[in-house]
């Protein structure tokens, strides 16, 4: 096989190929046309990840507009953000099937024992990740609809997408389980830090690291009106700290209270009950 110096030689050829081979003689117009097509394709390759990173800069949006269909059909509309910006926790699905005798069996997806070969396991893993990726909490909050109607409409569409996908997963599981009642919930598997792991605090699959993700609406707290007079004068800071701290402790304790994992079936029932699925083809959705 070639040594590294050979690679160098080849690189030279890559940079200055004319030294090695003679270009084919072709009509200039043909080459110009091919060159234009090449440039268009390269734009279609580079602009989607640029869009992904920039979040929609004006120039990228303008340039990408005529190429959008091309990039989408060729599956070029990707961001290439593998393990980025930071490698994070995994997202799984817990499925509970209620048997005819009332007993419940739970299965976690993905499962290396059940899905083999690894590629099949990975496809299931990606499905579980997808459900969390597209998750949109119930809503929108009434306040958002008043302030920003388009954002509220988008919220409704995204929620509908999540609910449709979730329902599709549930339907599949029901088909696999002789139409028995099935409920699913999303689970996040946290990763301990290296220090925690080596201190023996957690094994990678420690049950404490699995956190059920609740499907709760986002509530907007009413804005606190603080009268100007209540801002303490510098001299009075020390006197006033105690009640302020107490108040903040109260709030914190409410927020930090351990969230009780809902009974999966009940949760699903509630979701199913509250599921408002807008018709995909309605004018409201299309707009």
């Amino acid at each position: 096989m070639s040594s590294s110096s050979d690679i160098g030689q080849q690189s030279d050829e890559a940079s200055h190929p004319a030294d090695a081979e003679t270009p084919v003689q072709r009509g200039n117009w043909k080459r110009s046309l091919i060159s234009v097509l090449i440039i268009v394709h390269l734009l279609a390759v580079a602009l989607p990840p640029m869009m992904f990173q920039s979040g929609g800069s004006a120039i990228v949006t303008t340039l990408l507009r005529p190429l959008r269909a091309y990039t989408e059909f060729l599956y070029l509309d990707r961001g290439y953000a593998f393990f980025a910006p930071d490698p994070g926790p995994s997202h799984l699905i817990d499925a509970a099937v209620t048997q005819s005798d009332g007993q419940r069996t739970e299965t976690r997806y993905p499962d290396r024992e059940q899905q083999w070969p690894r590629l099949l396991y990975h496809r299931h893993f990606m499905l579980a990740e997808f459900l969390t990726e597209i998750y949109q909490p119930p809503g929108p909050p009434r306040e958002l609809a008043q302030i920003d109607r388009p954002a509220a409409e988008q919220w409704v569409r995204l929620r509908a997408r999540y609910e449709h996908v979730r329902q599709s997963l549930v339907d599949h599981l029901r088909t696999q389980n002789d139409r028995k009642p099935v409920a699913i919930r999303r689970v996040e598997h946290l990763i301990p830090s290296a220090a925690e792991f080596h201190a023996g605090d957690f094994a990678l699959n420690d049950p404490l690291l699995y956190e059920v993700l609740l499907d709760l609406p986002i509530t907007v707290a009413p804005p606190q009106v603080v009268p100007t007079e209540s801002i303490p004068a510098p001299a009075a800071v020390q006197d006033l700290t105690a009640p302020v701290d107490d108040a903040s402790k109260d709030t914190a304790s409410k927020d930090d209270a351990p969230k009780e994992a809902p009974d999966s079936e009940t949760d699903a029932q509630q979701n199913a009950d509250s599921e408002v699925t807008p018709e995909p083809d309605t004018a409201g959705v299309k707009s």
Partner: peptide, 10 residues
């Protein structure tokens, strides 16, 4: 872009 996306994380 894989690298740039990673560079946005800590």
């Amino acid at each position: 872009f894989g690298g740039l996306a990673k560079a946005r994380g800590d």
